[in-house]
Nucleic acid binder design. Structure first.
Length: 426
DNA sequence: GCTGTCCAGGCTACAGAGAC
DNA sequence: GTCTCTGTAGCCTGGACAGC
């Protein structure tokens, strides 16, 4: 674990530790205690923590699993994965209604599988757990059923009045006076359109007033329907493809349940994950600076800056107010021919960068140079504090230029040419 | 009958190619 | 320049099949 960078650990947390429990979670509801335990293992791995080391946890797992749009690191939660995988059975149940397993569910739980209702007390099964979770999420404001809508094909399976096959809801709610005239309430779209006229199954002809108005609108809507030879099927409205994906539910759940930290995480694809993660730590004040160490009650000799030895070593000081950070800022701005401005915190810097007039890709590259500079500043500070032979300050800016130029600028240009971008070494 | 191998099916991330 | 698709890497289990 010590040989892996935080970027490597982040990738493994998402890809490997996040997919290991898929098999069990595909069918069973993971109990809260198990989820807590698994999340704790992932957190310890990402933090490079093992029980023997007693290393401090710097990355709050709640922030780590928060979507990037809300200021997190975008590692989806296992809770959301589990519920997304469970809901996939509802999707299959609706789309594979004639399969053997769906017929068994219908025989036990009813023709609609009891979805959306509360299962009987004391009766637990895989299916009843799924139904309960759909209900539970709905009460939490995540109504997954509303993202299911019917895509009409030949109209043979879809109830004209009762089913939701239009974005604006059921026809019976939209045209209540016409619905009242219908003698066959469960008629399918296909059967209705096969009749000699739309009034064929009405108790009587529509009269004037509201009834006539609703009837005319109803006729207009029905004229827009084009039936095909395909069977009616369910469509998933949360993504463009219409096909259910666990990822879409996963991001919906995390997006709804996770707290908003106010600042969107600025992820830059031109720099390695470890550098991006470092910038995220700068943004969320999750670095082991001397000030943060003392705040955690760890006994240290001094809390002054490890680079300049002037001022308290906070994140804002190290990367924005420290003499060395300011020199680097001036040199980068001169290199990129950008008017220099003193920024005292990450938030200041973020506002300043967003106001610079630059092409979107160029700005990303410019931000990437800063990201690399902050990462190198942190390496410089660590070498100065923990290595016998300190780093050379004289060559520091050359290092920033060469690594960011080859890593970010050349990398960005070569990626647009379809070749592998150069990566910044450790 | 046991054991080992391969594949399918569920997901993730990332890189590269190609289309628009 | 951006988006989408494809391929490859990883994790798990179960089932089919070949070899001993």
């Amino acid at each position: 674990m010590k040989m892996l960078s935080v970027g490597g650990r982040l990738t493994l947390v998402k890809s490997v530790l996040g997919s290991m429990p898929i098999f069990y979670m595909s069918m069973f509801k993971a109990p809260a205690g198990i989820l807590k335990s698994l999340e704790s293992m992932r957190s310890h791995f990402l933090n490079g923590h093992d029980s023997a080391s007693g290393k401090v946890i710097w990355l709050s797992w709640k922030k780590v699993i928060t979507p990037r749009d809300k200021g997190g690191l975008g590692v989806a939660s296992l809770f959301a994965l589990n519920r997304g995988l469970m809901f996939k059975w509802v999707w299959r149940f609706l789309n594979q209604g004639s399969s053997l397993w769906a017929r068994v569910i219908k025989a036990i739980h009813g023709i609609d599988g009891n979805i959306g209702r509360v299962p009987r007390d004391g009766y637990n099964s895989c299916w009843s757990n799924i139904v309960k979770e759909v209900k539970y999420l709905s009460e939490k404001g995540i109504d997954l059923m509303k993202y299911l809508c019917i895509r009409v094909g030949n109209g043979g399976k879809t109830s004209l009045w009762e089913d939701i096959w239009r974005v604006d809801g059921r026809l019976r709610d939209k045209f209540p006076r016409i619905y009242a005239l219908e003698s066959c309430k469960s008629i399918t779209i296909g059967d209705k359109l096969a009749q000699p006229s739309l009034q064929f199954s009405f108790r009587r002809m529509p009269r004037g007033g509201v009834e006539q108005e609703q009837y005319e609108l109803f006729v207009q809507e029905m004229q827009q329907i084009i039936l095909t030879s395909l069977e009616d099927r369910w469509s998933w409205c949360l993504n463009g493809s219409g096909e259910y994906t666990v990822a879409s539910v996963r991001s919906l759940i995390d997006d709804t349940l996770c707290m908003d930290y106010g600042q969107r995480t600025r992820w830059n694809e031109f720099v390695p994950i470890k550098v991006n993660t470092h910038v995220w730590k700068v943004m969320t004040n999750s670095l082991a600076t001397r000030f943060n160490l003392s705040r955690r009650g760890i006994d240290i000799a001094s809390i002054s800056c490890g680079t300049c030895d002037q001022g308290v070593e906070t994140v804002s000081h190290l990367f924005f107010r420290c003499d060395m950070a300011q020199q680097v800022r001036r040199l980068i701005n001169r290199w990129w021919m950008v008017p220099d401005l003193v920024t005292e915190s990450f938030e200041d810097w973020r506002i300043w960068v967003s106001n610079i007039r630059m092409g979107s890709k160029t700005k990303k590259m410019f931000e990437g140079v800063y990201y690399v500079a902050w990462w190198l500043l942190w390496m410089f500070r660590n070498k100065k504090l923990f290595e016998v032979k300190g780093p050379s300050k004289a060559t520091f800016f050359d290092d920033v230029v060469s690594r960011s130029f080859y890593g970010v600028v050349v990398g960005a240009k070569s990626s647009s040419l379809g070749t592998t971008s150069l990566r910044i070494g450790t």
